[in-house]
Amino acid sequence: MWCRLGLSQTSAAAHYQSLKISFRSETMRASSLCLLFGLVLLMAQTSAQSQAAGPIPEECCFNFIDFQIPTAKIVSALKTESHCPVPGIVVTTPRTRFCVDPAEDWIKSFMEKKAAQQNKK
């Protein structure tokens, strides 16, 4: 085969290597451009979704505790904002804050007592 093309074996190998290198670089450039284009589209999509949904408020509850907090340790208990995805109550103690499910009986009675105390004032 080398004889028919009039090439020596070393020049054929060099020609093949140069073709292989240029093909790899072209393939790498195309792959890089596709990856970059995909990332730009993903960022645009994510940005559009976050703007449409609006900002998530700071005081939203996503996970709730599964134990009762002694009422003597509760410093404050506030309902989450209405545009939070899940309703909840943020309970603050001297050390930390907890999210409580508003359907819990103990927090319902605490909130009712708190509302009654505020109505007396």
Rank of each mutant, 00 (worst) to 15 (best):
M1Y: 09
M1A: 12
W2F: 14
W2P: 00
C3P: 00
C3I: 10
L5E: 14
L7W: 14
S8N: 08
S8L: 03
S8C: 08
Q9W: 03
T10S: 11
T10K: 14
A14C: 03
H15T: 07
H15R: 10
H15C: 02
Y16M: 09
Q17E: 13
I21F: 01
S22M: 07
F23L: 11
F23D: 12
R24L: 06
E26K: 13
E26L: 07
T27V: 06
M28A: 13
R29M: 02
A30I: 08
A30D: 09
A30N: 06
S31A: 14
S32H: 05
S32F: 05
L33F: 02
C34I: 04
L35T: 12
F37M: 13
F37P: 01
G38E: 08
V40E: 04
L41K: 09
L42K: 08
A44N: 11
T46L: 07
T46A: 14
S50F: 02
Q51P: 01
A52W: 09
A53V: 08
G54V: 12
G54H: 13
G54E: 14
G54D: 13
G54Q: 14
P55A: 15
I56M: 12
E58A: 08
C60Y: 06
C60Q: 09
C60V: 06
C61N: 07
F62K: 12
N63L: 07
F64G: 04
I65V: 15
I65N: 03
I65G: 01
D66R: 14
D66I: 05
D66Y: 02
F67S: 05
F67G: 02
Q68S: 03
I69P: 00
T71C: 00
T71Q: 11
A72W: 00
A72R: 12
K73E: 09
K73A: 04
K73I: 00
I74R: 06
I74M: 09
I74P: 01
A77E: 10
L78H: 07
L78N: 14
S82A: 14
C84K: 11
C84A: 09
C84W: 05
P87A: 09
P87D: 14
P87H: 13
G88H: 04
I89M: 05
V90Q: 11
V90L: 13
V91K: 07
V91A: 03
V91L: 05
V91C: 02
T92H: 04
R95W: 00
R97I: 00
R97F: 00
R97E: 05
F98W: 08
F98Y: 15
C99T: 07
V100M: 08
P102K: 14
E104V: 06
D105N: 09
W106C: 03
K108F: 01
K108W: 01
K108M: 06
K108S: 03
M111T: 07
K113T: 10
K114L: 13
K114N: 12
A116F: 04
Q117D: 13
Q118F: 06
N119F: 02
N119Y: 04
K121M: 08
